[in-house]
């Protein structure tokens, strides 16, 4: 494909309660297959997707955090979380399944401006 665009996926929903989180992840993975640079920002309740200790077998769903922790293998290694979302939920990096960069509001606004396509889920 001739054109190249930078993609930012903003994932705002918690896992399992709806299909949004899975759809965001599938979109990111598919876009990476097209060899486009992809970053993911976890914001709001979306930061709960990264929480370690998820065992969704009882709700008959696949473990979303297991796929998330494999993202760097798919060349998606620019992963960000909203600092406000983390602080409001009493979370820090040690609670998460993989290392991510924490961004404040100014950092997030700048991140949006630096990407050609920004998709919210």
């Amino acid at each position: 494909m001739s054109k190249s665009k930078s993609f930012l996926i903003i994932s705002r929903r918690p896992p399992y309660g709806s299909s949004h989180a899975r759809d965001a992840l599938d979109t990111a993975l598919t876009t990476a297959v097209f060899e486009q640079p992809v970053a993911i920002l976890f914001q709001g309740d979306g930061v709960y997707q990264l929480l370690s200790g998820q065992e969704p077998g009882g709700v008959r769903q696949k473990n979303l955090s297991a796929t998330l922790s494999a993202l760097p293998m798919y060349d998606i290694d620019r992963l960000y979380v909203c600092a406000r979302a983390m602080a409001q939920r009493g979370l820090d990096q040690n609670d998460l399944v993989l290392p991510v960069e924490v961004l404040d509001d100014a950092g997030i606004a700048g991140l949006i401006r630096n990407h050609d396509v920004v998709m919210n889920f």
């Binding site: 979109t27 598919t30 876009t31 097209f34 486009q36």
Partner: peptide, 10 residues
């Protein structure tokens, strides 16, 4: 497939 979404965005 979802590739059609990525292609459309590109």
């Amino acid at each position: 497939g979802l590739g059609q979404l990525a292609e459309a965005a590109i």
